[in-house]
Design a protein around this nucleic acid. Structure first.
Lengths: 132, 132
DNA sequence: CTTGACCTTTACGTAAAGGTCAAGTATTAT
DNA sequence: ATAATACTTGACCTTTACGTAAAGGTCAAG
């Protein structure tokens, strides 16, 4: 049974990125698709890595951050040190993400306040201006 | 009663950014502190804008995004068009933020899975590998 | 009057994340 | 055979968000 594979344009269309981006990620050692001659062939595993990278990006990590994290994750060697490093890394990331969630919630609150202000706007100011 | 003001270094220390960053934001028209001679004097309002900018940044907006948003917010003119623009803008941002929250939640889930994998790592693979 | 701390502007430098050609190869369709 | 596609590598270009160095103003303390 031969696993499903993807061409560079298939994958880039699916994830709405350009081929250039995929080549760039390869350049940065984030993905290492196999080759048929010189043509890249992406496996399911490659696809999964890509999904991770892009999600990481969306929530504010750099691609080199993601590279390191993926490396730790896919590490074959189970040297205790490496595993601990991986754990610490993940935990640090979790903290960052949780702070970000709080930030987002606060920002959302304020945005909603602003929307109310826009909606309730009146041609003449009432006592409720000069708030910020 | 004279309102509290801040020097560039006070503000940069408080928010843990460099004075350069504050000057840069001014250059980009995000903040416009008043001056004593040529020395910048930041008001409470300036401080509030800064807080907004930084929070926006943390959750993935560019500083020019934040500039535009702040402009809409602080707009004195209540021209209907402008207000609608502001509303649309805010709503778009809210959607972005909510998508980001979902992303973060998913990422958190996966990070926690990975942590479990790191914790439960065993020298010989069991049937549970090759997952991603 | 000099030292130090803090401020200023101007201007070039840089890292990250790709975009944008250019020029060539390989496969497929007519 | 030739054109159209899809792929390749390389090289330089761009934007964002500041860093950093140069060169100097200002003001209080000793």
């Amino acid at each position: 049974m031969t696993e499903k594979t993807y061409s560079i344009s298939e994958l880039s269309e699916e994830f709405n990125i350009t081929p250039r981006t995929l080549r760039f990620y390869e350049d940065q050692k984030l993905i290492a698709p196999s080759r048929n001659g010189q043509t890249r062939i992406y496996s399911k595993k490659d696809r999964a890595r890509l999904a991770w990278i892009l999600r990481g990006k969306r929530v504010g990590f750099t691609i080199s951050d993601m590279g390191k994290l993926l490396d730790l994750y896919y590490l074959e060697g189970g040297k205790v040190k490496q595993r601990e490093l991986g754990l610490q890394n993940c935990q640090a990331r979790i903290e960052t993400l949780e702070r970000q969630k709080k930030d987002i919630d606060e920002t959302l609150k304020e945005l909603r306040k602003i929307i109310e202000m826009f909606k309730n706007w009146k041609p003449y100011p009432d006592q409720d201006n000069a708030k910020i």
